[in-house]
Nucleic acid binder design. Sequence first.
DNA 1: GGGGAGAGATGCCGC
DNA 2: GCGGCATTTCTCCCC
Lengths: 243, 243
Amino acid sequence: MDSYAVKIREAINRNETVVIGCECEVEYSGRAEAFLAKGERLIIIKADNALLVHQPEGNNPINYMKPDTKHSIKVNEGFMILKSQNLTLKEYLDIKMSKVHFVQSHQLKDGQKIQVVGTEKDMSEMIYNNPSIVSDDFKPISMEEQTKYGFIDVFGHDAEGNLVIVECKRYCADLSAVTQLRRYVEKMKKVKGTENVLGVIASPKITSNAQQMAEDWGFNFVSVEPPKYKERYNKDQKTLDKF
Amino acid sequence: MDSYAVKIREAINRNETVVIGCECEVEYSGRAEAFLAKGERLIIIKADNALLVHQPEGNNPINYMKPDTKHSIKVNEGFMILKSQNLTLKEYLDIKMSKVHFVQSHQLKDGQKIQVVGTEKDMSEMIYNNPSIVSDDFKPISMEEQTKYGFIDVFGHDAEGNLVIVECKRYCADLSAVTQLRRYVEKMKKVKGTENVLGVIASPKITSNAQQMAEDWGFNFVSVEPPKYKERYNKDQKTLDKF
DNA sequence: GGGGAGAGATGCCGC
DNA sequence: GCGGCATTTCTCCCC
């Protein structure tokens, strides 16, 4: 235990990324309060002093501390105790390790940012450049526009002189998507002093209740998929066997 | 590289949790498409075959695959290549490792669930048990009620016979919180055939625009903190020095 | 820093 | 499975 503690302390001081496999219990106090009883987990302390506790299953950390947290480690009565404090955010995490399976650390450097295609913004651009997706006579004026009445994905007008507000969702439009659109439409009507404002939901799917609410409010739903540029994968490829 | 590949393959087969420190680039295709250029990262493969790619900074994985993904690893031209496929979800991830700093694995077992205090549900319960927080004459009837028109946090009535709908937020109520409440109130008015339905936002804070919208709709805002039972930490404790 | 909204959101619960 | 919604949401962007 003592040698592990030394190793971890030195690794943190050198700003390495540290991984600990251990049995532990965890207590958190901050924005909420949480307790996690004894079990085997992975603890990660990153170069920016963020901390993650991962259970052996599931995508998300079960406990965590944000970057710029201070970590202190010591051994007491056979337990290794990691105390993490973020005084700025008033968050505190205590980990009591009863067994340590391994400690690994390494200096990691990485300044890369991820590039993602198929976001809602990509959908907006696609519609802006191909307005017939929405309707034959839709003429887009602006895109991703931050206005006083909200953040409108695609804004324009049609041949009859109606203003048109398009709200994109990359997956399934729900009630809150429709109320969001409703809020923009109402505000636009008020600001422009006209009733001629149309609302359009553009998404691959829409929930049944959202569909109903859209109809009640006279909004159109247009089924649109978010764009994918790569599609590298052969659709015939069904297994890893051939790899 | 080859010995690392063998080690990883065997660890996955034994359902261990695997941690790899490496330099790599990552490509994802599924719900969206993403590319991450070369950098040093932590790769984690969990016992349930979830996969995480973590950069040395930040709380969140930069790439990931959900549980029940199949992983295949091989060495080719000096690179270690990890191909992950989730055919059910039509998601694919390729990692090309150019350097491997370490590979660590261990059988981890953990069936514990976390207990959290201070959630929105705890706020609802607190208000249900202490209705005077909302108003002197508020009489709660139900809590966390699943209705056709939504999920009402606390529902009741006041001395004047108005129905009262309370929407709790554990942090700062925003526009969508108010539109959510508005949706419940409107539906309730329609279903009950009465105009006597009051809306209340209960949260520690409210954004200025949300406050305005709440006023426009005649909703009350009540400042309430989510409950914390533990508060173990001494408020005087300012540093880790004494630890 | 506040406010608004997306996210490859995730996860939970209820129907 | 769908639907609705909270999350110690997190993150980004704009004002």
